[in-house]
Design a protein around this nucleic acid. Structure first.
Lengths: 63, 63
DNA sequence: CTCTAATGTAAAGCGACCTTGTCATTATGA
DNA sequence: TCATAATGACAAGGTCGCTTTACATTAGAG
């Protein structure tokens, strides 16, 4: 499950900590998801989609 | 996190076992998700979206 | 160069997701 | 009625998602 988190975060000029704060999760979680170490839960995926104003499918990609 | 699994499954005339087979998960998992006992992982949510030919947002709803 | 922000990673712990196995209940059909 | 299918639920066990704490590395500002 690839994702475009790093790019989207950069477009917004946010640090991993900034994004973590907006999502209400730890910086390590953002880093781990961004680096592909694991996938977010579905609720967190929805939160990420909300933060960026995009559908989940525009952020997370099948492989 | 509400979902429209029961309705969609009924529309297709599938039993929980039928859907589980298509998703490659156990019948108990389908039942638990359908009953709202827990949310699917993101990869499973994508599989469900694929099976029904719908975007994730059309199946799973924020609360 | 020095200080600080940002990032990457690791460990331990907890709860969520998913499994197999099992049992109970309800509905349907021969 | 009897057999079978479908659903709901629970327990035990494994892995994943997320936490806090901690430390190392990299990059930029001054």
């Amino acid at each position: 499950m690839n994702n475009r988190l790093r790019v989207l975060r950069a477009e917004h000029g946010w640090s991993q900590q900034d994004l973590a704060d907006r999502l209400g999760v730890s910086r390590q979680s953002v880093n781990a998801i961004e680096k592909g170490r694991y996938d977010p839960s579905l609720p967190l995926a929805f939160s990420i989609a909300d933060v960026f104003g995009l559908p989940i499918e525009a952020i997370f990609l099948r492989d």
